[in-house]
């Protein structure tokens, strides 16, 4: 963690919460929690509302689909922390780790539905090139994706284009697979609140 305040500047209640999390999970506290709990009125609390709505709000996309989108956006940004975190949640939501690995390593050949593939392709371009055009969107709609679904996918993309930049700039510690599995379990049970 590059800013010491995110470690040492937390309030008393948050420090106690982190001690509890360490004791119960037997894993280090995921550093995303340090970000969202630091002066939470500035960023953490209002951003959590965005992430919760994007990832768990009503949508024609499943939770697994949206977690896969989050993982793919993060992979495109080369954000290791977020890629691992959301690949773990997607794998658990789908109960299919192979599908998630395949989609992240080769989107074109992975065994996923065409509307999802077309959407992921568009999100990857928007993330990598910072823009997409009308033709890119027409291809997504032609694959059978509704306008609302595109908007929902853009919401996921917004959330993780924000979080990923922060994870990398502040250099979140990347723990082992067990820590991500524990976090994934919590994120499926409780969401992002």
């Amino acid at each position: 963690m590059r800013l010491a305040i995110l470690d040492s500047g937390q309030g008393f209640g948050t420090k106690a919460l982190f001690a509890f999390i360490r004791a119960v999970s037997r894993q280090p506290v995921p550093e995303i929690l340090k970000l969202v709990r630091y002066r939470p009125d500035f960023f953490g609390a209002p951003m959590t509302a965005v992430v919760q709505e994007a990832m768990r709000g009503p949508s024609a996309w499943s939770v697994g689909d949206r977690e896969l989108m989050a993982a793919l956006v993060s992979r495109t940004n080369e954000c290791e922390f977020c890629t691992r975190a959301h690949a773990a949640v997607a794998s658990r939501a789908y109960r299919d780790e192979a599908k998630v690995s395949a989609a992240l390593s080769d989107l074109e050949t992975a065994a996923i539905a065409e509307p999802l593939r077309a959407t992921l392709r568009m999100l990857r371009k928007l993330t990598r090139e910072h823009t997409v055009d009308e033709d890119d969107m027409r291809a997504v709609l032609a694959a059978g994706v509704s306008r609302d679904q595109v908007e929902d996918a853009l919401a996921v993309c917004f959330a993780f284009n924000t979080i990923g930049r922060l994870a990398d700039t502040f250099e979140f510690f990347v723990p082992g697979p067990k820590a991500f599995e524990a976090a994934a379990k919590m994120l499926l049970l409780r969401g992002y609140r």
């Binding site: 928007l126 910072h130 908007e151 917004f158």
Partner: peptide, 20 residues
Amino acid sequence: AIGQATRQYEKGLAALEAAA
């Protein structure tokens, strides 16, 4: 971070609007 993610999001919405 939010500024850049916002610009990407708005480009996406504008392209969607044009395509739709």
